[in-house]
Design a protein around this nucleic acid. Structure first.
Lengths: 198, 198
DNA sequence: GACTATACGGAACGCGCGCCCCGTTTGTCG
DNA sequence: CGACAAACGGGGCGCGCGTTCCGTATAGTC
């Protein structure tokens, strides 16, 4: 349609800088307090006015989506990378990634809220990012099961549910001394029963 | 102080009935939608006016607390009952109660929210009820461990975290076809490793 | 250094919801 | 059946927060 319009001219330097600041502040604020955080506080943290936030993101939900999509895409990339291992290491790759995912989201309210769909209806973009992550996750799971490292009888949706649960559990305790304790239990739950593995 | 005042005369019949209605409606509403549900909707569901709700419960949070305390006390009673078994059945008693607890809270948002402390600061009464439940739970766990039915190396706080997580996971999927699937996985995670038990 | 489009900040608006008030209804007791 | 207190209900107030608007500041350009 209007190629010059959709390309536009590059945004001003301070605009780019402020956009980045807002995203970072929103990431921190959402992670710490979930969706409940007032938008004014995000603006304050970013050192900008409320109006500036709205020029970059049309709505608060859009801002939240942007933060979540960024995190989901980061996770999806790592999952993709985990698929690049030989079949024999499929089990290790699966569990390693699970640890990464749970550790990344440790004490972060936003991802858990988003995955749990707490109150908000996820928009198309978010769904796309989540779908990519889920696809990789399902593939990792299937390969780990084929390699005998993960029990049969569970599917991707079970895995998804368990991950959401583990996220909620980890964030609940917020125990910096022993991070990943829940993650270890979950991983044990996924493994086929073996003679005492510890 | 004023014994006639604190005893008072028995409340009117319709007052008792309406109080019960409000509690039931609040239970359903909170379970279905969490804290987010507007108070007017609870009143509407109960078939009363908003003013009536406030005459029985001074604040929305108090109403929420009343609902939660009722559920916690019910669970605490069942946990207490589960302690009445011989030591040899400690493992079964523990897992049975875990199933009850997870099943009871299946697809109920309120309990999970309350246990997770989502946004609200729990008041003294709630804490008392939760403490009683936790004490019984810890005792059940200890006995099950002593009986060799549950692995060592986890404590009551681990258990608590896992339960919160499982609640979140169960409520996420809301799959009426296969209830308790997460619960089964969690129970497997708690058991000491054994030759394939399924 | 001046000019313009772009971006900024924060005051102002509207809405939703928790909470309160008061005219009306209803249960209870003589 | 009549009278009085207890309880009801829903309209209204105030606040918090998402969103918008516009006067001001500043990056980019000649």
């Amino acid at each position: 349609m209007t190629p010059e319009a959709q390309a536009g001219r590059p945004p001003r330097a301070d605009a780019r800088r402020n956009r980045a600041r807002v995203l970072a502040a929103a990431h921190a604020a959402f992670a710490a307090q979930g969706l409940a955080v007032p938008l004014d506080e995000i603006a304050r943290r970013a050192g900008v006015g409320a109006g500036t936030v709205y020029r970059h993101f049309p709505t608060k939900e859009a801002l939240f989506e942007a933060v979540i999509v960024a995190r989901l895409e980061s996770l999806a990339e790592q999952a993709q990378a985990a698929l690049e291992v030989p079949a024999r290491q499929a089990g290790a790759a699966f569990f390693d990634f699970l640890y990464v995912m749970l550790a990344d989201a440790d004490s972060k309210k936003d991802l858990a809220d988003a995955l749990a769909g707490a109150g908000i209806d996820l928009r198309a973009i978010t769904v796309v990012a989540a779908a990519r992550l889920n696809a990789s996750l399902a593939e990792l799971l299937a390969r780990a099961q084929a390699a005998g490292a993960v029990r049969h009888g569970i599917d991707a949706s079970d895995l998804h549910a368990v991950i959401v649960g583990a996220l909620a559990a980890e964030r609940r305790r917020a125990d910096p001394q022993r991070p990943g304790r829940i993650a270890r239990m979950v991983c044990d739950a996924l493994r086929p029963a073996t003679p005492l593995s510890r």
